[in-house]
Design a protein around this nucleic acid. Structure first.
Length: 87
DNA sequence: GTTGAGCGTT
């Protein structure tokens, strides 16, 4: 499987919409849109996991596509930053 | 408005 970064999402995007979009390319294993933890507002990006081949196709086919009035950014996800210790 | 979160004790 491969993790895909999906950026430049409209704040109105819902995870099931993203799943539907990527499901047109291949089997979607997981969708994870990110919200601001304090305000609950969408942050405009998220992550999708797919089989590696499907992820490659999705990156090729969906990067730059218009979605909800915005041109999506689709790439393989960068490594998540380590969380800073709170203790 | 572009690279996640929260938890626990491995």
């Amino acid at each position: 499987m491969k993790k895909i970064f999906v950026g430049n999402l409209p704040f109105s995007a819902q995870d099931h919409e993203i799943e539907a979009l990527f499901a047109g390319i291949g089997n979607v294993h997981n969708v994870n849109l990110i919200y601001d933890r304090e305000t609950g507002r969408a942050r405009g990006f998220g992550f999708v996991t797919m089989d590696a081949e499907a992820a490659d196709q999705a990156i090729q086919k969906l990067d730059g596509t218009l979605f909800g009035g915005r041109n999506l950014r689709v790439n393989e996800a960068a490594e998540r930053k380590p969380r800073q210790n709170r203790w």
